[in-house]
């Protein structure tokens, strides 16, 4: 853990298969995360001992994003979270009009 180069790997190098999202997070976040897992190679981990779920970008040089828990976000918080996903290479919304 944490033995990699600065800022260019995820702390949980030993993680395996991605978890799937559940009721721990809100529907808006779940929709984005499921898309990123299924289509862009991102992974999702729900820490066993509690704590915030983490979303790992496919680009392993990018940091893991924490996911707010159900009922704990408002509109601006979701915008900030989406901006972070996009900043780390996630494509959302996925389709052009």
């Amino acid at each position: 853990m944490g033995t990699g180069r600065q800022g260019d790997d995820h702390p949980d190098e030993d993680r395996e298969e991605t978890d799937r999202t559940g009721r721990e997070i809100g529907n808006d976040h779940r929709r984005v995360i499921e898309y990123l897992i299924d289509n862009e190679g991102w992974t999702y981990k729900l820490p066993e001992g509690g704590g915030y779920p983490r979303l790992y970008p496919a680009d392993r040089s990018q940091s893991a994003i924490r996911v707010p828990k159900t009922g704990r976000t408002r509109g601006r918080a979701f915008s900030n979270w989406i901006a972070d996903v996009r900043r780390k290479g996630g494509h959302w919304p996925p389709e052009r009009e």
Binding site: G7, P68, N80
Partner: peptide, 24 residues
């Protein structure tokens, strides 16, 4: 930090040797 930033619409990301936070 996520807890503390909740009232500021915050999100935190962490990597090795780096972290970031966004608030409103």
């Amino acid at each position: 930090l996520m807890d503390l930033l909740e009232q500021h619409d915050g999100v935190v990301s962490t990597g090795t040797g780096a972290w970031a936070a966004t608030i409103s």
